[in-house]
């Protein structure tokens, strides 16, 4: 019973603390709100950049051209050989016969169309091909090498094309972009934490006398710290409300406004809002609460020396 009374008193004191020093609490809450808004925007931006680079990387296609003398049984066998390679996305393996390719060419361009019409099966200069995508683009060179060494395929492959030079550059650029994004977000979170903690420190400094008197009348350090830490918790929660609302509704309507993709390109797809906005929101509230509580804890501890 006494324990329950103590706990409820801690909560009551914490709430009193928030409202009794409302101007200072408001300063801390606004500080958390503004910095968390910046964090939210940067998290959303960097997640989308990562999402773009991911979708572009996943779109890199390897084309394996087969020699003209490959029989249809051999074509089937080559497919089963390709499936056995770990890094190849199984569902993306696609066979395109030289007739299909000719048809595609014909439909795509009027000038070619007349020429293609003159081809028969024997004179068609195009080749049968397999296309596939890889799971991990960093290993694309190894995967291509593995394909070249497949027991049946190695004699039947004419050549393999996957835009090597561009792929290599893509890998470097995207790796750099991702690292920069992660570093920027981490730096921003650190700066945010520092700013919030500092504001709380100032707010608590102005209550130094209150803490001093609590000590003088015989309050234990624990019973002084707990209400302040809970106050930090409340301030963290109150400060994250606006950033979370902005994230949930703002990103949702932004997504709808752009119809899910930037520049109308299916390569620049935005991250689906569900459950993305909730993930961002939980990161925001965790930062708000943790920094609020830890900031309060250390700020109070400083004044417990008298």
């Amino acid at each position: 019973m006494r324990g329950f009374r103590t706990v409820s008193r801690y909560f009551r004191d914490a709430l009193h603390g928030v409202f009794r020093n409302f101007s200072l609490s408001l300063a801390s809450i606004l500080c958390i709100t503004i910095t968390l808004l910046v964090v939210a925007v940067s998290l959303i931006l960097s997640s989308n950049v990562e999402h773009f680079s991911d979708s572009i990387r996943k779109d890199v296609t390897v084309v394996v051209f087969l020699k003209n003398d490959t029989t249809s049984e051999e074509v089937e066998k080559i497919k089963s050989e390709l499936i056995s390679i770990e890094n190849i996305e199984r569902s993306s393996i696609e066979f395109k016969s030289k007739t299909d390719s000719a048809q595609e060419l014909k439909e795509g361009n009027d000038i070619f169309s007349a020429t293609v019409d003159t081809w028969t099966d024997d004179t068609n200069p195009l080749l049968d091909s397999y296309m596939f995508k890889v799971k991990d683009i960093e290993k694309i060179d190894d995967t291509v090498k593995q394909v070249k060494e497949l027991s049946l395929a190695k004699d039947k492959i004419n050549n393999i094309n996957y835009g090597e030079d561009i792929v290599h550059q893509l890998i470097i650029v995207f790796n750099t972009v991702e690292k920069v994004c992660v570093a920027a977000v981490i730096a921003l979170i650190l700066v945010t934490s520092f700013l919030i903690a500092n504001t709380i420190k100032l707010a608590i400094y102005s209550r130094k006398r209150e803490i001093e008197i609590m000590r003088l009348v015989g309050a234990s350090n624990m019973s002084i710290k707990i209400p302040f830490v809970l106050e930090g918790l409340f301030i963290g929660i109150l400060g994250s409300i606006v950033p979370i609302l902005v994230t949930v509704f703002g990103y949702g309507s932004l997504f709808d406004f752009f119809n899910g993709k930037l520049f109308g390109s299916s390569l620049a797809m935005l991250v689906e809002p569900m459950p993305f906005v909730y993930e961002i929101s939980s990161i925001l509230i965790v930062i708000g609460i943790v920094v609020g509580m830890i900031g309060s804890y250390f700020a109070v501890r400083k004044h417990l020396k008298i």
């Binding site: 009374r5 309050a219 002084i224």
Partner: peptide
Amino acid sequence: FKLLPKLTVYENVAFAMEVLG
């Protein structure tokens, strides 16, 4: 003195008992 300026006379004195629960 070291009184808390935002609390009334009663609250200032009661404060010493409140912190002891």
